[in-house]
């Protein structure tokens, strides 16, 4: 008799998570990681218990927002990093700056371990920073968390991005994953004369029937949040927009 048991641990360690929000795109470089981090901060500031899981296994970056923090083991598994009322897990905490070349079947196993080993305890929201592309991560989440999973899909106004993201939205429809809405990042910036510039095009108001719930500005201060370890609200134009998106997610 062959028996699989890891799914028991996944169930146990995620049982008290009320909602899982995956921040996905299909296209790389559209800002999923900074948006995931900012949404987590905004939801936390609204008094909710929130966790952030970096599922970009090959290129984790969420640890960069929580420097000098370490993971600890306990009898049940691994405690996520706890900082500013946010629980965080990223393979970036465990891999120094070395490459993480995990291939084929090992990928599915590390995903299972990421969900079975981390003891999240009770959370109102777990925000998941997804990798670019359509791969195991998305199917793993939709298979295991059908009831509590929903998605926000990130694009830029660029036609190249929209084309790829449209495919992602179609897949989410096929897999019956609830979509909270589309976030259009790098949408515009306001120059010092007050003129609104849209360098990547006019963008869209909806995609495959899904509404755009936020158009985020280009905010050069965002880079300083990582480089100078500033708080997220330092990038105030971006932060004000993300707070509105967070409220929509919380109501969803």
């Amino acid at each position: 008799m062959e028996i699989e048991f890891k799914n028991k641990l996944v169930e146990k360690n995620t049982a008290k998570i009320k909602k899982i929000i995956m921040v996905c795109s299909g296209k790389g470089g559209v800002g999923k990681s900074i948006i995931s981090y900012a949404l987590t901060k905004a939801i936390s500031k609204n008094g909710k218990k929130v966790g952030l899981l970096d599922l970009d296994i090959h290129g984790p970056v969420e640890q960069l927002f929580f420097r000098k923090r370490s993971l600890f083991g306990n009898k049940e598994g691994l405690e996520p990093v706890y900082s500013d009322s946010i629980k965080v897990m990223s393979l970036g905490f465990l891999s120094k700056d070395e490459p993480i070349p995990i291939k084929g079947r090992y990928k599915e196993e590390i995903l299972e371990n990421l969900l079975s080993e981390v003891t999240w305890n009770s959370l109102d929201f777990l925000v998941v920073d997804m990798p670019p592309g359509i791969s195991d991560e998305l199917f793993f989440l939709s298979r295991n968390f059908r009831e509590k999973l929903s998605a926000v899909v990130v694009t830029t106004p660029s036609l190249l991005s929209l084309n790829v993201v449209k495919r992602m939205v179609k897949l989410l429809h096929q897999e019956k994953v609830k979509i909270v809405g589309i976030i259009e990042n790098l949408s515009y910036f306001v120059c010092k004369h007050g003129e609104v510039i849209r360098p990547f095009g006019e963008g869209v108001e909806e995609l495959e029937g899904e509404k755009v719930i936020g158009k985020l500005p280009i905010d050069p201060k965002l880079e300083e949040i990582v480089a100078l370890e500033e708080e997220i609200d330092y990038a105030n134009t971006f932060w004000n927009s993300i707070k509105r998106v967070a409220e929509i997610i919380e109501r969803s």
């Binding site: 083991g73 598994g77 691994l78 393979l91 465990l94 891999s95 070395e98 490459p99 993480i100 070349p101 995990i102 291939k103 090992y106 990928k107 196993e109 590390i110 371990n113 990421l114 080993e117």
Partner: peptide, 13 residues
Amino acid sequence: DLPIHYFPELIFT
């Protein structure tokens, strides 16, 4: 414990 205690797949790193 080394990270591979929890995530054996990190041996590739």
